[in-house]
Amino acid sequence: KNILDIIKLLEEKTTSLSISLSTIYLKKAEKNIYSKFGDVREKILENEIADLEFEFAENISDKINSVVAKFKDLPSDISLNLAVNFVASTLAEMFNASDIYVNLEDRKSGTDITISTIDDVPGEGTIVSFNPFTVKIFHEIDNLSSFTWFVKSRAFRMNDNSEALNSYVNFIDELFLGKIKALLYKERANKDPLTLLYNRWYMGRYLENLVENYLQRNDIFSVFLIDIDHFKKINDTYGHTVGDDVLRALASLLQEFGKANQITVGRFGGEEFIGVGTIQKDKMVLLCEDLRTKVQNVLSKKFDFGVTVSIGIASVSEESNLTNLLGLADKRLYKAKEFGRNRVFWTD
């Protein structure tokens, strides 16, 4: 009787899908107890168990449909970072998971995104185990990239023979991988292969959207063009390999600068780079002065020769036509060079 009372108490607490199988197992345990005494309650429990198993299968189907619907609702231009975050939040929701790890690494585009609630991911390759429910899926997309997701839930319990769960895991894995691969290939197309910054084509589309937002909602943004001083001389004197090293070193500083200040940066062509931020021009001027100083200090120590940059800045409030806006920033960039280089120009 004490065992049955405990089972009844636990059964009343199992209300969510993530632990609904526990209810089934508890009823099976209760049924086994009654079967020893030939009690009529055994047959009643058998019917209840069948109903619960059917309901659980339907709930699994509902969850799959929910995941599919969410993927369909994802915008086509969602960033890889947001997509990886979406995978992590979906895993947490589906499995009431305590431990989650999602990683996308791609050396070709310079992508390395990790969302994790744990310090370390166990094992190598793919793992699927039950009680507690644990899944680790590893995909080598190609020789330059990989995608891994891991989830562990002490609440979600199923037995080893659960075809429903195996199908469920395979289905969501295919959804995750398909979306991530599509976005990854798109990201690669948007990146400059040498510096791993956004390329001119991507920055052009990004600027077009910002101009449209300005015309519709008056959303301010500023743009700067930055050019390495005497870059041709660096190439002619030290060779193109060293020249490429300088480009990569500047790109790395720009990447750090962009992340720290919410500025989108890219390579615009040759030794010229671009930065765009949804800020007023006076704020951009201060940031670019700091950037210019940092480039001079860091890169001149990194290389045996001095490396400086010139920067021209313009705001959409001065010119809302994109071609003219870039022309204005370019004009100021060359003024900075005319006045001695290694400086920032923001007026005519």
Rank of each mutant, 00 (worst) to 15 (best):
G110H: 08
R107V: 09
Y206E: 13
Y25E: 13
E105M: 11
K179L: 14
P193E: 01
A57Y: 05
L325S: 06
A29P: 04
S162H: 01
V285E: 14
I274R: 00
S20H: 09
Y214G: 14
D142K: 10
E289M: 05
E212S: 05
K181V: 11
F56K: 07
V121D: 07
F133Y: 03
A251K: 06
F86R: 02
Y101L: 01
R41E: 11
F257E: 03
E12F: 10
L287H: 04
L326W: 10
F156T: 02
L225M: 15
G38L: 11
T347D: 15
Y101C: 01
K28M: 12
L325R: 03
S315T: 11
L247Y: 02
V276N: 01
K294A: 08
D39K: 14
K191C: 07
F171W: 04
I19E: 07
F268S: 00
I172D: 01
N143M: 07
V295A: 01
V102F: 06
N321H: 14
S98T: 13
L175R: 01
D290C: 06
G239H: 00
F339K: 15
E208D: 14
I311W: 05
T237G: 03
I19V: 12
I118G: 11
D219E: 13
I127G: 01
S252C: 04
I100Y: 05
G327N: 12
D77E: 12
F176M: 06
